[in-house]
Amino acid sequence: MGYDHLLELVRRRYSSIGTNRMKLQRWFQLPVVRIFALLLTFGLSFGWVLQSHPAVSQQPGNAQITLVSFAVTKSAYDRIIPKFVANWKKETGQNVTFTQSYGGSGSQTRAVIDGLEADVVHLALALDTNRIQQAGLIQPGWEGKLPNNSIVSRSVVALVTKPGNPKGIKGWQDLAKNGVSVITANPKTSGVARWNFLALWGSVVRTGGNEQAARNFVTQVYRNVPVLPRDAREASDVFFKQGQGDVLINYENEVLLARQQGETEPYIIPQVNISIDNPVAVVDRNVDKHKNRRVVEAFVRYLFSPEAQTDFAQVGFRPVNTNVAAQFSSKFPRISNLFTVSQLGGWNGTQTQFFADGAMFDQIQTAIGRR
């Protein structure tokens, strides 16, 4: 559409409403009006669709993020996500909606590899994130792309007993006693349960015991386990709602959250304990497919902010932000002998030794007659 043609169309439109024709012609001689018409012509020549009504919307489009996480983080994200959505709307004018999936870390990992199009994964252990990387969905070096080596939440292992602690549970060794029923999740499906297994193992080898002693101890503990729930939330339900077991091995954060919801069972934080480090990562292939990298990366960075770390702490996770950790120091007791998975051989080593098909956990299950 040419410039003169556009002017003629506009003249006709305005003359139809009874405007004095001579005044209208003089009005169209004004430089600013002619410039405006020229800009309209330029826009139309590039395919812009302009109508007299309604006005073209200049609001940015919506964005969507799919978050896949392990079961016990839901309470934190119930607080964090609405705040991020409000902040992002304020900063960019863009509406963000979330699709969320929670479950056992191992099960969630398989779901992502099998086609669940997560944009963000927050899993119980780096081993699961590495499995997604090995499937080609996450670029190598994901750990170094975020603060704190991408560890966004922490916890330790807690032992929860029945009211009055009738079995006299005081620490790890009591779990191997005859007549003590222990509830813990299945390490083949639950990241929490792998941490539990490693804490049991480390309670021996990190205090001077050898591997044979550790194996004997862990075998006896699992002999006392009547059922293996799929994840930490199911394990809590078995203990709290179904009333099974004398002691529950679980995340400290899950125990603290249960207490906020009215549970009053006593618990022990063993002074020989493992640092449960939970990483977050962007699932690069899916983000590139969904073309939402900007908002996804903003979200994972937000998880390390003091605001989000405070939300993690309020539902029982040990914050990774040092300033927030100092504010909540009275809530989280200091651990005198706190070890890490790297001190037990790292995830590659522990996977091969303990959790691979046919490895030690399977051997223990066979030894106690469960396979």
Rank of each mutant, 00 (worst) to 15 (best):
R21S: 11
R21P: 03
M22N: 11
M22T: 10
K23C: 00
L24F: 00
Q25V: 10
R26W: 01
R26G: 00
R26A: 00
R26F: 00
W27N: 01
W27E: 02
F28I: 00
F28D: 00
Q29C: 06
Q29M: 04
Q29A: 07
Q29W: 11
P31T: 01
P31D: 11
V32G: 07
V32H: 13
V33I: 03
I35Y: 10
A37R: 06
A37W: 12
A37E: 14
L38T: 05
L38K: 09
L38D: 15
L38P: 14
L39F: 12
L40C: 15
F42R: 12
G43I: 12
L44E: 12
L44Q: 11
L44P: 07
S45R: 02
F46S: 09
G47R: 03
W48Q: 05
W48T: 06
S52R: 07
S52M: 03
S52Y: 08
H53C: 07
P54M: 04
P54T: 03
S57I: 04
P60I: 06
G61P: 15
A63M: 13
Q64W: 10
Q64S: 08
I65T: 06
T66E: 14
T66Q: 14
L67K: 02
L67A: 01
L67D: 04
V68E: 09
F70R: 02
F70L: 02
F70N: 01
A71K: 04
V72E: 12
V72S: 12
V72Y: 09
K74C: 10
S75L: 08
S75H: 15
Y77C: 07
Y77D: 14
